[in-house]
Design a binder for these strands. Structure first.
Lengths: 133, 133
DNA sequence: GTTAAAGTTTACGTTAACGTCAACTTTAGA
DNA sequence: TCTAAAGTTGACGTTAACGTAAACTTTAAC
């Protein structure tokens, strides 16, 4: 009737390539809730999954607060539907924003393309006249 | 033989919906180079275009430093081709990252979808037994 | 000529997400 | 038993991108 596999802080740190400080920080912020064995932290499957969510949120550009809100949605004590809708909206908005960002990036790339063309033309003018003479 | 249309700091601030502080900050960081009329700043078309680039970079998730590098590429004194290639690479990488972020966001959305389904099932169990009696 | 609006410089404050000691304890291994 | 490795709790430091307040000047309008 154990709790299943457990992890030490450095095991998780290695697995997800973050520092132990980072993991402690997430606990400080109330995102992780490891149990204790004396002074030492013991992380379960649950904590590990939460950490994965946090890091996925981070990659996606969410703040810790936003990730926390999402994580809370997985809480069995899911309170009100409104809060849930609110959340889903935020994530949707973020998706739209990312798509907009992609457009901006593409515009920047196009701009640089233009610069490159001009750059190439300039290079030719300097390199050719004597060679093609 | 004027310099064409010019703008005051607050005109630009209004047009792009940023504070004057922000514009001064960009100058401080060497991204903008308005001329002066006594103490007051005078912005030209060039500065305006630069500001647009900065904000586009910002929307795209670039840091000011990264935007500066891009802006410098538009400088007629375009020095070395290597620096240029380096830049184009960075922007390409960022595009890839954004695409990856979109994937992460979609994964998060899927997760929330699951939560919602469970949520709905739970609501039905509570709401139906007496109504459907 | 006197305000009100806009502009200027200087400089300290703020937030997020950790980094980086320092000082100490606990555990595993030879 | 002694040491190295891993862990713990403070607590101050850091970076980016401005916000904000103070104190003063300049310009435009009446």
């Amino acid at each position: 009737m154990g709790e299943g596999k457990t992890f030490t802080i450095s095991e998780l740190a290695r697995e997800f390539d973050v520092t132990t400080r980072t993991i402690r920080f997430y606990e400080e912020k109330g995102l992780l809730h490891p149990s204790r064995q004396g002074q030492h932290r013991i992380f379960g499957k649950q904590d590990r999954a939460t950490l994965e969510l946090i890091l996925r949120g981070k990659r996606a550009g969410l703040s810790l607060e936003e990730s926390r809100e999402i994580i809370d949605m997985y809480d069995p004590a899911g309170d009100n539907y409104e809060q849930y809708q609110f959340l889903l909206n935020k994530v949707n908005q973020r998706q739209a924003q990312l798509e907009a960002q992609l457009e901006d990036i593409k515009a920047l790339l196009n701009g640089l393309e233009e610069v490159r063309k001009r750059c190439n033309r300039a290079l030719k003018k300097i390199a050719r006249p004597r060679a093609a003479g």
